[in-house]
């Protein structure tokens, strides 16, 4: 499967329709840069976890951040590899605002042989006023992550 978010155009990424659980939650692509990627989770009544306040449940945000941190690795290694989430930790700094789209920004910290480390921030428009901080690690079930040799990276930067 060729699915490389780092080489896809923004239009191609924006047209990506997630199936399965991500699609059911309404998660879509939001933005991308060389070292981060953002997904968006539009507000919906079906996501509510506290009916008194209308605040969405924690689960949909975790689902989005799981996807976003996974995409950050593919964005970094510039190819798709099947990978499994080993663990994910989320700290809620404040509740998400009812009616607002939640944006999940994720970046890849390091890709080792079989484990990759990521972190992310969930916000609703202002990165300096985050909803949550996330740390997630992934593993490759068989084989190894592709490696960008340091020398190849240097050559790319010099070119």
């Amino acid at each position: 499967m060729k699915w490389d978010p780092s080489s896809m155009t923004l239009d191609q990424l924006a047209a990506t329709r997630f199936g399965g659980h991500g699609g059911r939650l309404g998660i879509r692509f939001h933005a991308r840069a060389a070292d981060w990627i953002e997904l968006a989770l539009p507000y919906s009544d079906a996501l509510v976890g506290d009916e008194a306040s209308g605040v969405i449940a924690s689960g949909p945000i975790i689902a989005m951040m799981d996807m976003a941190t996974s995409f950050a690795i593919w964005n970094q290694i510039k190819t798709f590899v099947p990978q499994a989430t080993l663990d994910l930790r989320i700290d809620y700094l404040r509740p998400a605002r009812p009616g607002h789209t939640v944006i999940g920004r994720a970046e890849c910290l390091r890709v080792a042989r079989s484990i990759a480390f990521t972190r992310g921030i969930a916000h609703d428009g202002d990165l300096d006023d985050p909803i949550a901080h996330v740390a997630a690690t992934f593993m490759i079930p068989s084989g190894q992550y592709p490696r960008l040799a340091p020398k190849a990276v240097d050559r790319e930067q010099q070119a």
């Binding site: 199936g19 399965g20 659980h21 059911r24 976890g49 689960g59 949909p60 975790i62 689902a63 799981d66």
Partner: peptide, 25 residues
Amino acid sequence: HDGVIGRPGFLQGGAISGLLEVAAI
């Protein structure tokens, strides 16, 4: 069901997390 699938034949991690949250609450 279709609404909790990740890769084909498997649950999405977020759906498992959601179920754990619902169970905890």
